[in-house]
Structure formats: C-alpha cells, structure tokens
C-alpha cells in the first residue's frame, strides 16, 4: 500500500491509542447531552437558527 508514493509501515495505532479513543467516545456522549440541554434551554429554544426549534415547540405544547 502506498500513500503519495510512500510505503506503509506496521506502526501500532490502536494499541497505544485505545484509552484516548475510549475517552473520546465518552466525551462525544457527554457533549451530545450538553448539546441537548443547551438546545432546549430558554436562550436557544426559540432561536430562528435552531434546527430543532419546530420539534421543541411541538414538545412544549404537548
């Protein structure tokens, strides 16, 4: 295999990086929760740029 004409070396990538990938997954879920809370907050729920504004308006009426 080559990339721009350079050969590929058998450097281990998953073995030393798995803790960081695990931390990244946890961070992803936490940021998704933070985003959900922020998107539904009073400051941003009625913002016209908010792509979830219609959903939030429906949920708040029910």
């Amino acid at each position: 295999m080559s990339f721009l004409g350079l050969r590929k070396w058998p450097t281990p990538v998953a073995k030393p990086l798995w803790p960081f990938i695990a931390a990244g997954t946890i961070t992803y879920f936490l940021v998704a929760k933070a985003q959900d809370m922020g998107v539904k907050s009073e400051a941003y729920a009625k913002d016209p740029r908010n792509p979830y504004a219609a959903q939030i308006a429906k949920e708040s009426h029910h």
Binding site: G24, V31, A34, Q35, M37, Y44, Y52
Partner: peptide, 14 residues
C-alpha cells in the same frame, strides 16, 4: 459557542 453546532464541531475535529 452555540449549542446546536457542538456535535458537528466535535465530529469534524475527532
């Protein structure tokens, strides 16, 4: 800093 862009930023960065 706008919440609805957080996941997009994070995905691209990671």
């Amino acid at each position: 800093l706008i919440p609805f862009y957080f996941i997009n930023q994070l995905s691209f960065s990671f």
